[in-house]
């Protein structure tokens, strides 16, 4: 450029103070309360799983960066670490380490890097990894253990949602008490059990505006309305909407997974459809599907239509007519 007085640059011209690592580390901090509660409830098993997923995810990311000749510093942007944390938090506490490692490798390799790395992936990488091992090792992925704080002496243990679905917990009156669901004193995936810990993390993200508030609100709204209708019609058979919100992976999914910036829509209207769709599908799967829990498949399914939503609900250009002739 021959010493021009003007700087010529393509858009964007406004830049936010936020950077990828800054956003990512905010999310990691927001995840920490739930991480700590899971370590409290599941002790060494939790620590080992987190460690295995972190090492496997970072190693896979590093190998791909090396093969694809990309700058190594993006290894430390926090995105692979978030994938590792989220994956570990959605695993059964008693899962053997080799399965966790397979899940981590798939999450980074097939979930993220084959599409071109951060920003190009269609699906939430952690959920891709989880879906893979869920389908590959269905028995191991649905074998649960009670938290050490419960002092029960059984080898296996049902999750609150599993109880609801397969043991008719509402009819039997054995539904997990809401207090346990709030604190996390129950069976389930590592990081999903404690609603309070997840709410604390969500507050951090919402006040920092790291996540789009419409997504969790839409998901929770749709699920509450859907399960609420059935509960009103027959409270002796169906669980309350509050139970459905607090049990299982709904909160971690709504606050930390569906809100992934890369795989969620960019326009408000698209976002509403995306979020309501997830909530509705979770309700459908939990009430009528073959699985006890449906958060993972709902988010992955709605991920697939995000490009379509982005294209259909493009904001109008200033002055553009509502209906072009």
């Amino acid at each position: 450029m021959p010493n021009s007085e003007y700087m010529i640059r393509s858009s964007p011209h406004f830049k936010d103070k936020d950077s990828v690592p800054k956003i990512m580390y905010t999310v990691i901090i927001a995840l920490l309360p739930a991480v700590f509660t899971s370590v409290y409830y599941f002790r060494l098993k939790a620590v080992v799983l987190y460690f295995a997923c972190l090492v496997a995810c970072l190693a896979t990311e590093a190998i791909f960066l090396w093969v694809r000749k990309k700058p190594f510093q993006s290894l430390w942007d926090g995105s692979a670490a978030i994938t590792a944390l989220l994956l570990a938090m959605t695993l059964p506490p008693d899962l053997s380490l080799d399965l966790a490692v397979i899940g981590s490798v798939v999450a980074i390799a097939i979930g993220k890097q084959v599409f071109g790395g951060l920003g190009y992936n269609i699906f939430n990488p952690a959920l891709v990894g989880r879906a893979f091992i869920q389908t590959a090792f269905p028995v191991a992925m649905t074998t649960w253990i009670p938290p050490v704080t419960l002092h029960v002496d059984t080898a296996t243990f049902a999750t609150p949602l599993g109880n609801l679905k397969f043991q008719d917990a509402v009819v039997q009156g054995t539904l997990a008490p809401l207090k346990d669901l709030l604190l996390g004193n129950t069976g389930g995936c590592l990081g999903e059990t404690s609603a309070v810990a997840l709410f604390i993390g969500a507050l951090i993200l919402l006040t920092k505006k790291t996540i789009n508030w419409r997504i969790p609100v839409g998901i929770i709204l749709a699920l509450s309305v859907f399960t609420g209708l059935f509960w009103l019609v027959n409270p002796n058979k169906f669980a309350t909407p509050v139970f459905h919100i607090l049990a299982g992976g709904l909160l971690i999914g709504a606050f930390f997974m569906a809100t992934d910036m890369v795989t969620s829509p960019i326009t408000p209207r698209g976002t509403w459809i995306y979020a309501l769709g997830i909530g509705l599908m979770v309700g459908l799967i939990r009430l009528f599907g073959g699985f006890a829990e449906g958060v993972m498949y709902s988010i992955l399914f709605m991920n697939t239509i995000v490009p379509l939503l982005n294209r259909s609900f493009r904001p109008r250009i200033l002055g553009e007519r509502r209906k072009p002739q």
Binding site: D98, I102, I110, V114, F132, T135, A136, F137, A140
Partner: peptide
């Protein structure tokens, strides 16, 4: 060895074929 059941399901066919094509 724990068999990866997903590989004998349709999903495994698509994933393997995709990787082979790549």
């Amino acid at each position: 060895f724990k068999p990866w059941i997903i590989m004998i399901l349709p999903a495994g066919a698509f994933i393997t074929l995709g990787i082979l094509l790549g």
